[in-house]
């Protein structure tokens, strides 16, 4: 390898002063554009929404996108409600590849799990899904650890209060952003198309055509 080629490779790895960090794509082009290139490293991204708003589907698309970029993902399923069937395609044969899920028996320990995972440096993407509302001090601490390890940390929670049917993606940190994502952008059809219980809604498909192009942000 020549010296010039080595310099070029190092320049791609070492972040020069003032350069924007490369984000992790979410899988939704409009959302990535609204966030300025995907989920930012070294910052906390909060994804909230009512049950049924498409929040879990958005998280799944986000994890799929990260794994496509060969990033190892740790997902803390604090409420222990994820359906493994929807995520089985993300498990890999090798130990150092794909998705790992942590299911704490007590949701209150989810924040501790997230801190360990980010601090280990082994996972560039960590998702904390569910669990109790985090005190401000713990959120600040997690943000600091994410910044130190240049990790993408996603905090996701279901919001019971009625704030509309959209999913809210909020980025904290140096360049805060808030983006509303309509459910129709994430999920094509409202009702489940579960393969075990076949969906026979031929009529409903015509009545409610999928709306992929929703306004984002």
């Amino acid at each position: 390898m020549s010296l010039a080629a080595l310099r070029q490779e190092l320049a791609q790895v070492v972040d020069p002063a003032g350069a924007r960090p490369v984000g992790v794509a979410t899988g939704l082009t409009e959302l990535d554009q609204a966030l300025g290139g995907g989920l930012s490293r070294g910052q906390i991204t909060e994804i909230t929404g009512q049950p049924g708003s498409g929040r879990t589907t958005l998280l799944r698309q986000l994890v799929e996108g990260a794994i496509r970029q060969e990033l190892l993902v740790a997902y803390v399923d604090a409420d222990r409600t994820l359906n493994p069937r929807d995520w089985a395609h993300l498990a890999r044969r090798a130990d150092d590849d794909g998705l790992w899920v942590i299911r704490p028996p007590d949701p209150a320990r989810a924040a501790w799990c997230s801190e360990l995972l980010v601090r280990s440096g082994a996972f560039p993407v960590v998702v904390l899904d569910g669990g109790p509302v985090l005190p401000h001090a713990i959120t600040v601490r997690l943000a600091s650890i994410a910044r130190e390890h240049d990790a993408v940390l996603v905090l996701s929670r279901a919001m019971e209060e009625s704030r509309g049917r959209n999913v809210t993606v909020a980025v904290r940190g140096r360049a805060p952003r808030v983006v509303e994502v309509k459910r129709e952008v994430i999920v094509a059809r409202r009702l489940c198309a579960h393969s075990e219980v076949p969906d026979r809604r031929g009529v409903e498909r015509r009545r409610h055509p999928p709306a992929r192009q929703g306004r984002v942000g």
Binding site: G27, P51, G54, T56, T57, L59, R60, Q61, E64, T81, L82, N83, P84, R85, D86, A88, H89, A91, R92, R93, A94, D95, G98, V101, R103, I186, V187, A188, R189, C192, A193, H194, S195, E196, P210, R212
Partner: peptide, 26 residues
Amino acid sequence: RAAWADAPADGVATAPPATTASTRLL
């Protein structure tokens, strides 16, 4: 149909369509 286990995958599962809603199970 599926489970959580500490074991390597012994095959490749088919990905659900991107826009199909994920299910939460109780």
